[in-house]
């Protein structure tokens, strides 16, 4: 053992690696090793597999760009689920992002104790994870269910609505449930960021002629928490593009006419149920590129914050 350590030290010294550098690599290893195994390796294998036809039984066959061509030319469901995913992203994304900021901003006006209480209230739905099935009871399709019964008794509708099946309503209903759960990490980050804005800046602002809270928000608060806003945007983008289990629980998979199926649900269907791993991998690569693209657009937009027109 002693000889091995000695030999190892000599080997490191020959390569010009100091003991300290070696120690650094050593304590980085547990995290990076597992990170490589369960995150990087799956991503890399997705990229490689996306050029193959593979069903887990027979050997993979190289098919070049066929999987990607199939996505855009031969797969009606794909085009539909991408449309739905983008629809969710465009409506729920900015709305829940702005909401998570504005709620945090309003909560920040209160004294610390009230603030903790309000934070808990708004964070609880995201905190408890799988509470969303409660909505199933409120929105059930028969005439006895809560909402239908209420609407029937007021005479607003004449027959019960199948909230999760009717394509006229299911998108909106799921959006409501999604909103309910969307005050997560980004909401907490916004609250924390707001508390850390230097209060001297506000005082200086009033002397410099800031007259209402909206001006204060635009010229002082937002610019001083730009980096937090980017972090919370990243978390919110990730969340909004991965909406799937909520929808699968509430509307089932596949939903009526694939009306509310998202890309993530479709990927697990193709990969896990149909064993078309090559095609599923190509779909995941496409999803990641799409998310990355959105993230850099938001990063660019946030750079405009706090700038005046004149």
């Amino acid at each position: 053992m002693g000889r091995m350590v000695k030999w190892g030290k000599a080997w490191l010294a020959r390569r010009g690696i100091s003991g300290e550098t070696f120690a650094c690599y050593l304590i980085l290893l547990p995290f990076m090793g597992l990170f490589f195994l369960f995150n990087i390796l799956p991503v890399l294998s997705s990229i490689v597999l996306s050029f193959f036809d593979y069903d887990m039984v027979s050997a993979p066959i190289f098919t070049g760009l066929d999987n990607y061509v199939r996505m855009f030319t031969g797969d009606q469901v794909f085009l539909k689920v991408v449309g739905t995913t983008l629809r969710f992203a465009i409506v729920a994304g900015p709305a829940s992002y702005l909401l998570s900021f504005f709620l945090a901003w309003m909560i920040n006006e209160f004294s610390p104790r009230v603030r903790v209480f309000l934070t808990l209230i708004f964070y609880v739905p995201a905190l408890v994870g799988n509470g969303y099935f409660i909505w199933q009871i409120l929105f059930s399709g028969d005439s006895y269910a809560y909402l239908n019964n209420l609407l029937l008794s007021f005479g607003l509708i004449t027959e019960p609505i199948q909230w999760f099946q009717d394509t006229a309503y299911n998108f909106t209903v799921i959006m409501i449930v999604q909103f309910w759960m969307s005050m997560g990490v980004s909401f907490l980050a916004n609250i924390a960021g707001l508390q850390n804005v230097n209060t001297d800046l506000y005082e200086a602002g009033t002397i410099d002629g800031i007259r209402n809270r909206w001006q204060e928000l635009w010229y002082i608060t937002l610019p001083s928490m730009k980096s937090i806003l980017l972090f919370s945007a990243v978390m919110q983008i990730q969340a909004v593009f991965s909406i799937s289990s909520v929808i699968q629980t509430l509307a089932g998979y596949p939903s009526v006419n694939n009306s509310v199926d998202t890309l993530v649900s479709y990927i697990s269907d193709v990969g896990i149920t149909r064993y078309e791993l090559g095609y599923a991998s190509a779909l995941s690569v496409f999803l990641f590129l799409m998310v990355l693209f959105v993230r850099y657009i938001i990063g660019g937009l946030l750079n405009l914050v706090g700038k005046s027109d004149h």
Partner: peptide, 24 residues
């Protein structure tokens, strides 16, 4: 570079990792 990769993975979807993870 390594931290950049960790940061980029903030955006990666956990569900889409499931299939290759299963193979591993």
């Amino acid at each position: 570079v390594l931290f950049g990769i960790v940061q980029a993975m903030l955006l990666y979807n956990a569900v889409t990792l499931a299939v290759p993870q299963y193979l591993i």
